[in-house]
Write a protein that binds this DNA or RNA. Structure first.
Length: 291
DNA sequence: GCTTAACCTGGACGC
DNA sequence: GCGTCCAGGTTAAGC
């Protein structure tokens, strides 16, 4: 395997790839993480201050640097957050090396459409089914075929209702086809172009897509568009915000008003890095709920 | 402007 | 075994 020097920046693959921001990563018994990113199968392992990598087809070094955001100064972000909140400082220590990813925005959008009222294992399973049915073959290794995430053109061209039964997507299947069609209808490079506009503009464009609400839009902003201030508010985040910041937040459902209150609370405390804070707190809550 | 039911499915849980 | 609840939401109708 080739290696990349992390130059003193932390990276923990278990935390980064297993914290629920991406759905296509698995860990082998030998400790190597593998998953399909865009048009390559990637294998990763961290030892000391080096990240060892291999891609199929080869030549994916730049893809890995970009996907893992290896040029970011994570130490500076963690210091800034830790100075603002002692609880976050504890989580930065506890989850040392958890990073945000820079995923492909089209894949992120379509993946999170599958996440509505769903559980992480079922989302992952559904996406693998979709990739094997409609994605292009990336490589074959030890008799196992690996497929890219399906292109929106392919999903949009399917008959209505087909996706509902595949991967047990249920009502999310028709949403997926509908969102894929709207991506196709936009000008080429539209989603990727949202990296170059302010967060508020990107979020507004995303929620204008039918089938995309504020939560999915924030997931896409945070996990694929470099909008580190985005705060996806799901049931976990609502509960932890109630526990930590908003004791009077009694609502059990996430209405628009509740969503805004939670986002404002995060933004007020953690500013431009509210999304990083959200990810630390979300993961803590995820472990708590699994315990 | 806010709340609520409906939308699929399967695992967890209580009885 | 069966019923109920809930899971990384969104939409449209009703108030």
């Amino acid at each position: 395997m080739d290696s990349i020097d992390l130059k003193g920046q932390p990276l923990d693959l278990d935390l980064t790839l297993g914290c629920g921001q991406a759905f296509r990563w698995r860990k082998r018994e030998d400790g190597v993480w593998y998953g399909v990113v865009r048009d390559r199968l990637i294998e990763l392992q961290v030892e000391g201050n080096l990240v060892y990598w291999r891609t199929y087809p080869d030549g994916g070094r730049e893809l890995i640097v970009d996907y893992l955001r290896l040029t970011d100064d994570v130490n500076a972000a963690n210091r800034w957050l830790s100075e603002r909140d002692p609880h976050i400082a504890q989580l930065v220590e506890r989850f040392h090396g958890m990073r945000l990813l820079r995923q492909d925005p089209t894949e992120a959008l379509l993946s999170f459409v599958c996440s509505a009222a769903n559980s992480i294992p079922r989302i992952s399973a559904a996406i693998e089914v979709l990739a094997s049915l409609y994605g292009e073959l990336v490589c074959e290794k030890r008799g196992v075929c690996y497929y890219a995430f399906p292109k929106p053109e392919r999903l949009a061209a399917l008959e209505p209702g087909v996706l509902n039964v595949q991967g047990s997507l249920g009502f999310r299947g028709e949403n997926l086809r509908m969102v894929a069609q709207q991506i196709v209808d936009q000008s080429e490079g539209w989603l990727l172009g949202l990296r170059n506009v302010p967060y508020a503009c990107a979020h507004a464009e995303l929620v204008a897509v039918r089938g995309v609400g504020p939560k999915i839009a924030d997931c896409v902003c945070l996990f694929s568009l470099d909008k580190d201030e985005a705060v996806p508010v799901d049931t976990h985040v609502r509960q932890l915000a109630h526990r930590l910041f908003l004791p009077d937040l009694k609502a059990k459902s996430i209405t628009n008003a509740v969503y805004r209150r939670v986002v404002d609370a995060f933004r007020e405390r953690y500013g431009e890095l509210a999304g990083w804070a959200q990810q630390y707190l979300f993961y803590e809550d995820l472990l708590r709920s699994r315990a």
